[in-house]
Design a binder for these strands. Structure first.
Lengths: 369, 369
DNA sequence: ATGAAAGCGCTAACAC
DNA sequence: GTGTTAGCGCTTTCAT
């Protein structure tokens, strides 16, 4: 039997442990633990001694050990599709702020729309024993999810996610905002409106497209098949889709895009082909990323609040993690959307109001007051 | 003495542990551990049995326990100033990809240029026992750093960081790229060039400004004090700085910006005041974010490769973490920069070559082939 | 080459 | 109210 021996393989001197504090304060480690965790019954004077000991030795609780014994890591996974799409950093920031406020840390990962990567990512998160995962993208294998659901592992999805009961989901009201967008265009006199979708494996991309179709038909407006073109939720996709649209016999007078990056691509594509926005063609985006108000022309777009999205996601996760939280049984959170009108939409060229406009060089029509 | 008892406070059924595997394979847990960690001497047939047992019970090593005992977490901290500045997501993505490839996970945090937040963030990272931290921003307290340096804790900084020996640093060659930018403008005929800096508490902002000043003086070009204006590395900052510049008696014919976001703000600000880019004013950015090629007009900018930055950062960190790695003693990595010419720069208005240009409506001059 | 067991730092059950 | 101690899952030393 080997006698007691110190572990010698560590890289650096370990920092003070709970035992150092206990010794210094002249109490047991249990008392230190209770003090640190704010557990009711520690005599005030003892607590005081413990706290000063903590300060003196510079004690910081070891998260790994805590997690190991408690089975909880206070780590939240956040899966997004593409960290380089500006919408997600904004979401990440909100999510992180809220998480930290509530004592959690965030493990972020992006999937690049790759199901294999997604699966791997979620596994890595599980391996780091996150307490829950918010999945803000599509394409995760049913099988893995099923396993997690069976284990009652806390998860939230945006837009129904997989068809499974007992899954917490953030329902984004795409219809609301997109209907506003379509009606805004219709009110300006547009009849011929095209839509550039996101990658159609994504549920949220399908949802947005369907919302568009529904809003159009509500107004009795028809949408020729070739006016619905699939993009990729990137600027490149927007440019390509624009080219397709421009080759058409009957060009649309307005384009609604499934997200802002696509719309920015469209703006670029139209400029390249000397079409003026909004005078020749109106463009509407979706998301309302910060950048939207700074592109030229400032983009009319449907706002989806990432603040709301983030806070709902965290609520949903915590509801699954901490039993006895008020909304422990809520399984749906709804996220509203609404139109923000800026300068990328106007009357269709040749319409009466457009002709009435007196600005000769619309592009340079100063916003300068 | 309490008899043996199971911990009952856990939320969910724990997944298979090393003991389950050992039992199933009919070996000791030590053998399982050795197998999993690929340690030389395990009889092939035993290893085989262990692996199938692992598959059968769905065993996944518990990272927390591993970290606890080994003192290494295989977690890398990445501190950026502002995750919503598109440059950083690009960096994050590269960093993450490389880290994962090399068996590490990434703990990301942004500081929003707030020293208090920064300090807190680094502490949180330490608490999660990251193996090292890459600090891609400024404003961390000397004191904390000093403590970490004393503990030989692996850290990398961009641009000298604090003045301390034994710190690994990524030296970005701002001068190179910015000199190219200035010379490009000078070659086009610009003499009157302004500079919009970043927030000047940032070392890298100062470095960029100084590089500009140096490049100008190399050409014998003077820079009036009011042609250097402090921005914030955001679009808003760019707009504001533009306004300041436009109020000046002698307006510059070109503006060099400390980063692309600022430049995008400038583009917006100039458009609002009916100045044409590049015909009235040329604009140059810095970073070459993906977006730069899609704004209108596509932005001429100095490229700093975030791929290089990321891989150098990881190399530097690993050099500090894993002794005996080849570059264990390298303390400096140098990152080159270079100019990418697009369409936001041209001859100054009124110059001979500008007059020779035949395009009547430059804005709409089609790139269409 | 394999196994037994110590112990990483902590929480929580239990004893007093 | 406070202390003692088992044990979370793992790596590693030591003995075989």
């Amino acid at each position: 039997m080997g006698g007691p021996r110190k572990n010698t393989n560590r890289l650096r001197a370990p920092s003070a442990s709970i035992r150092d504090v206990a010794q210094r304060a002249g109490v047991s480690i249990a008392t230190v633990s209770r003090t640190v965790n704010g557990i009711s019954t520690v005599a005030p004077e003892l607590a005081e001694r413990v706290w000063s000991a903590i300060r003196e030795v510079g004690y910081v609780p070891n998260t790994q050990a805590r997690a190991l014994v408690s089975g909880r890591s206070r780590l939240l996974g956040l899966v997004v599709s593409e960290i380089t799409n500006p919408f997600f950093p904004e979401l990440v920031q909100e999510f992180e702020n809220l998480a930290v406020e509530q004592g959690y840390e965030v493990f972020i990962g992006s999937t690049n729309y790759d199901p294999v990567r997604t699966e791997l990512l979620v596994r890595r998160m599980l391996q780091r024993s996150v307490d829950g995962v918010a999945i803000m993208t599509f394409g995760i294998e049913q099988e893995l999810i099923q396993k997690l659901v069976d284990r009652a592992f806390p998860m939230v999805f945006v837009d129904s996610g997989p068809d499974m009961p007992n899954i917490r989901v953030l329902k984004v009201d795409y219809s609301g905002g997109i209907r506003e967008a379509v009606q805004h265009l219709a009110a300006l006199g547009h009849r011929n409106i095209a839509f550039i979708s996101g990658p159609l494996q994504m549920r949220s991309a399908i949802a947005r497209r369907d919302a568009f179709l529904k809003s159009m038909s509500e107004l009795g407006l028809s949408v020729p098949r070739e006016h619905i073109v699939e993009g990729t939720h990137t600027m490149e996709g927007g440019i390509k889709a624009t080219e397709n649209l421009l080759h058409l016999g009957e060009m649309p007078t307005a384009i609604v895009c499934s997200n802002d990056m696509t719309a920015i691509g469209v703006l670029h594509g139209l400029h390249r082909t000397t079409h003026e926005v909004p005078d020749d063609i109106s463009v509407i985006g979706f998301d309302d990323i910060h950048l939207a108000q700074f592109v030229l022309p400032p983009l009319t777009t449907v706002q989806m609040s990432c603040k709301l999205l983030a806070s709902a996601a965290i609520q949903a996760l915590r509801a699954g993690i901490e039993p006895g939280l008020s909304q422990a049984h809520q399984t749906e959170w709804s996220i509203p959307t609404h139109l923000v009108v800026r300068q990328s939409t106007s009357f269709p060229r040749g319409s009466l109001p457009a002709l009435a406009k007196t600005r000769p060089t619309p592009r340079r029509a100063a916003t300068k007051s």
